[in-house]
Amino acid sequence: MNELDRAGRAGRESGIESGPEAGEDAERYRRRRLDEELIDAYDEELEMEVDDRLQESGLEISDEARALRRVYFRELIRLQGELVKMQDWIVSTGHRLVVIFEGRDAAGKGGVIKRITQRLNPRMCRVAALPAPNNRERTQWYFQRYVQHLPAGGEMVLFDRSWYNRAGVERVMNFCTDEEYEEFFRSVPEFEKMLVRSGIQIVKYWFSITDDEQEVRFQSRIEDPLKQWKLSPMDLESRRRWEQYTHVKEVMLQRSHIPEAPWWVVQGVDKKRARLNCIHHLLSQVPYHEVEHASVTLPSRVHHPDYIRQPVPENMFVPEVY
């Protein structure tokens, strides 16, 4: 009998699947099941961080690292609770929020976006990660394909890369002309000022990592079969052109840092600290407060004496391999 089988049997014997334990009243059983569901939900979230392959590979985690992880998870869950409050406020007030995440490949943008959205309502918090423009989009006004992703009232949109592609990858890879590049810097301050005047709040983050750290992260993706999909030919080419990216980043921050939509630089070498610092700062930029909610009461289920549940054919069940 393997560990999953033993765990399953233990669960059934403890009453998790079969109902209340001997002498356990209905209310206590209900409370226990709610607690178990909550624990299971947290376990599911933590599995995204705590990779069992660490044990399988024989890697050791120091006591200091374990202590830091405990602090990280505690603070992450606390900050995510504040993000839920912030979203409630955004929905109730009709606020419109745009958060832009820029940085080198493997700088950690996707990681922090994932933690921000993890517990939020996806209908009200959307991620815009646009692919390369198609032939038709290349002939449009440059900002046109981004405009359609801007938030309506009560929404927040996180741009995983944004219109600043023109100031970064397009410039380095020669995907735009000198004239288009200069026109971008003439237009982007006015574009963002116009959005702010219309009531859209813009928060812009640049995730900064070192040369050595990017090399380690790229090498990790090469060696890990579960991460290799993250590497594209463009990523590899960007690694070769590190110094060019540094130059265009410096120009971008200088020429598009405006009072209405300033840039904020996140130190991203330590992923966990970067996530916590970015979320903490984002919360400080929005004047939210806790919104009162009416208490929710679960209605009683309606029972009909003539209702008969029809049996499901055995061949329709998913095999219980685990």
Rank of each mutant, 00 (worst) to 15 (best):
R275W: 09
S220C: 01
I200C: 02
R28K: 13
F184T: 03
E64G: 11
D224R: 07
D178S: 09
Q144L: 13
N174W: 00
L59T: 13
R171H: 05
S18W: 01
D235Q: 03
G15T: 08
F175Q: 12
P225C: 02
S92T: 01
D160S: 08
E190S: 12
P131V: 02
W264N: 15
R12Q: 09
E75G: 07
S198D: 09
P305T: 00
H149C: 02
E102H: 06
R69V: 12
L83M: 10
V269D: 14
L59Q: 12
E213C: 01
E170D: 10
L34K: 13
R96L: 03
Q219C: 00
E44H: 08
M316W: 15
A107T: 07
L276D: 05
R255P: 09
V157E: 05
E47K: 14
H247G: 05
G111W: 04
E56K: 15
A7H: 13
L226R: 03
V127T: 05
Y307H: 14
R241I: 01
V188N: 03
L120P: 13
G154M: 06
G153T: 14
P259Y: 05
R126Q: 12
W141F: 07
F175Y: 13
S300N: 11
V269H: 06
R66F: 15
A152K: 09
K114S: 13
P259I: 06
R30I: 00
T297Q: 12
D35L: 15
V302A: 08
S162W: 04
R119C: 01
R309V: 06
R31I: 04
V251M: 10
I90L: 12
P20A: 03
R104Y: 14
I16A: 14
E75P: 05
P189I: 02
Q219T: 11
R69S: 07
E82V: 02
I222K: 14
H149W: 13
A7R: 10
K230M: 05
P133Q: 05
D63W: 11
R161H: 09
R241Y: 09
S256Q: 05
D212Y: 13
A67S: 13
V84E: 12
E37T: 11
E137F: 01
Y245R: 04
S284T: 15
Q285E: 14
D25H: 10
K193W: 15
D105H: 04
L68Y: 00
Q144W: 00
G94H: 04
F191I: 03
R171C: 07
S14Q: 04
L282I: 11
S92L: 12
K204T: 01
A274L: 10
S220Y: 03
G108L: 06
G199W: 04
A274G: 12
P151S: 05
R6E: 11
S256N: 03
A294K: 11
E45Q: 13
Q87W: 02
Q144D: 10
L34A: 15
Y72D: 03
L83D: 08
Y142M: 06
E183D: 15
I209L: 04
R171E: 11
L68A: 14
Y164D: 07
D88P: 04
I200G: 00
P20W: 03
V291L: 08
M234K: 03
I16H: 07
G199N: 06
K193T: 03
K204W: 07
A67Y: 08
F101E: 01
A67P: 00
R186Y: 08
E290T: 07
Y146Q: 09
V216I: 14
E292H: 12
S256C: 10
D211Q: 13
H149E: 11
T139N: 13
W242E: 07
L38C: 06
Q148E: 09
D306C: 07
L276H: 10
